[in-house]
Design a protein around this nucleic acid. Structure first.
Lengths: 191, 191
DNA sequence: TCAGCTATGTTTACAGTGCTAACACAGCGT
DNA sequence: ACGCTGTGTTAGCACTGTAAACATAGCTGA
């Protein structure tokens, strides 16, 4: 009942099929609607409602997957940060994620996310903690909480501004360079 | 033809009426649709299309007004920044704007904004320039461009994260304090 | 074995949306 | 007086999210 791997009966595992259909559409840039997702999964328009209360519920599930991916990009990719420039790479990776998967990024953020005690909230918090840990490792003296917030804010803000075209994005290498400069600039102010 | 103040004939100045109706709905938190805006302005559903090509066109007009307001909040309010803490107040004001007028903020940002050479782009650029000027005044030695980008990014990111509930927003005073701390934390890192 | 229960999926329907096309009317210049 | 253009209206299309009623498949217990 909980984990159906082999199909054959009604549909198999529709929930997963819907999620992957939706994710594919998101990645390929198609605007996605519940109906379109259902169509792509080969079921009727209202079938998704057996597995997701809402459109929002589907989006939340996608968002959770997005957060896991983002966390993997940030954490899994390279070694733990040891110095300031490594932190800049966090921001670079973050912005790169947003630009590589814009629609998913918009689903992850850009919604009030009122669902209390949601799995989604936990996923977002995990991100915050990862940043706080990293910062604490590199700068143990500083106010880790405030710094983590600032770091996240900086990365997130740059990601949004590039994504929305408020800052002109060129090649991903150019963007990476500019994110690095911005990060270094603001962390080299000092009194 | 361009500026009709007195009405009496067909409708008077519908364009302005639509804009203000839409802005009111945005401010009062109602989800806004073209049809609802038309209803509120007392005209038929398709009347807006005489004045706005698209829903996007209406939103862009609202966004431009939003950028003007934000610029006024940032620039008009207080004296020009003279020191680092004044720059933190920029961020505070920015985040406060986002939280006071969330729907408008989402209209201003959160869209690809592909309209090339738009009035909207100019409005956004004005923001960037204001920040660059302020930074150049306070920190003439630094790379003003990178710093302005970083400052904007930080403010914008915090605004988005609070708006979307990724960071818990309490009273506006609490938020202001946390924005200040974040700003000070990241500008006090230094090598 | 078979009756029925529950989980899953389908059909139908409704209200709302953005948008287009065809039409109506007012005021202008000629 | 005529028609043109700017403005507004009525109908209608294709789409959306969502609910209600119905259908079916496989399990569960008699």
């Amino acid at each position: 009942m909980s984990t159906l791997e082999k199909s054959g009966y009604h549909h198999g595992d529709l929930r997963a099929a819907l999620l992957s259909a939706a994710m594919e559409m998101l990645e390929s840039g198609e605007p996605f609607s519940l109906r379109a997702v259902a169509r792509r999964a080969g079921v009727s328009q209202t079938a998704p409602y057996r597995h997701f209360k809402d459109r929002d519920a589907l989006e939340s599930a996608l968002a959770v997957e997005g957060f896991r991916n983002l966390l993997a990009d940030l954490g899994g990719g390279r070694d733990l940060p040891a110095a300031l420039p490594d932190l800049a790479e966090f921001a670079v990776t973050y912005v790169d994620f947003a630009l590589r998967r814009p629609a998913l990024f918009r689903v992850m953020f850009g919604k009030p996310c009122d669902d209390a005690a949601d799995e989604r909230v936990k996923a977002a918090d995990a991100l915050h903690e990862l940043l706080a840990d990293a910062l604490d490792r590199v700068l143990p003296d500083a106010d880790a909480s405030a710094l983590a917030t600032a770091g996240w804010g900086l990365a997130h803000g740059l990601a949004c501004l590039y994504l929305d075209g408020k800052l002109q994005a060129g090649s991903s290498k150019e963007v990476a360079d500019r994110v690095r400069s911005a990060f270094l600039a603001i962390t080299s102010v000092g009194p």
